[in-house]
């Protein structure tokens, strides 16, 4: 049995942001934590905005939860009024013990996953998340590695082999897995190019600092430069908190 995976889905409520239904259906294999946030400028006290917008925000949030449930998912919800959405996303991701944070982009369908893997990234965490969300045989998974020169190709293939084995152990069909190692001096661009042929990107966090690893990092820049949603697999906040 795959472990339960908790996915944080930040939604800019009251601004018309839509989470695509295929994506919701895909994420519904885990538990969805909807973080509805409303970002307000500093001229305004959060409580001031709250008084005025809370009912409308609750309404929109209820609609979203209904959609998630109608697609077979379970959702927890948080509603936050904030000056800084990034700080809020970090805080709630930690408090709600989420394994993955969604950087949303439109998605027509979710059938092809790409999982860029690099050294020093928690293979175990990525395998847990990918296997929990992709038991479905209709989902193809590309494990992807960028080597900066030819000498790194063999190591990259080994790395992807490890990830692949981990996934198979966790119940993913080997037929659905493919591996790809590319040589490029611009890894970010290589990921963006490869992501063109995929629907969803799953990648790990990099930096040990909360702010650094969630934002302004490769994952965020990838999300800005592709049309696909990015799922950022969080590192454990404190190693001994995890089983």
């Amino acid at each position: 049995m795959p472990e339960d995976v908790r996915v944080l889905v930040p939604v800019a409520i009251l601004s018309g942001q839509v989470i695509p239904e295929p994506l919701i259906r895909f994420l519904s294999r885990g538990t969805i934590v909807v973080l509805a946030y409303h970002e307000i400028p500093e001229q305004t006290a959060p409580e001031q905005a709250r008084e005025q917008f809370e009912p409308k925000a609750h309404e929109e949030l209820a609609d979203l939860v209904e959609t998630i449930e109608s697609l077979g998912g379970t959702a927890e919800t948080r509603l936050v009024f904030t000056h800084e959405s990034e700080q809020t996303i970090e805080r709630v991701a930690t408090e709600a013990d989420c394994d993955v944070v969604l950087l949303s982009n439109p998605a027509q369908s979710v059938e092809r996953l790409i999982v860029p893997v690099k050294e020093h990234i928690s293979v175990d965490r990525i395998a847990t998340v990918v296997s929990a969300l992709s038991q479905d045989p209709s989902i193809d998974i590309t494990l992807f590695h960028v080597a900066t020169d030819e000498s790194g190709v063999a190591d990259g293939e080994d790395l992807l082999g490890d990830v692949s084995d981990e996934l198979v152990v966790r119940g993913v069909q080997r037929d659905n897995l493919s591996r790809m190692v590319t040589v490029s001096s611009t890894p970010l661009q290589a990921i963006v190019d490869a992501a063109d042929h995929h629907d969803v990107i799953v990648m790990g966090e990099e930096e040990p600092t909360l702010r650094g690893r969630l934002f302004g990092e490769t994952s965020e820049r990838v999300a800005e430069r592709t049309l696909s949603p990015v799922l950022v697999v969080r590192n454990p906040t404190e190693p001994d908190e995890e089983q």
Binding site: L79, V80, E84, Q87, R91
Partner: peptide, 12 residues
């Protein structure tokens, strides 16, 4: 880092 109202709504 937050005020949690009884309605559950949070103010960052």
């Amino acid at each position: 880092e937050v005020t949690v109202l009884e309605s559950g709504t949070e103010l960052e």
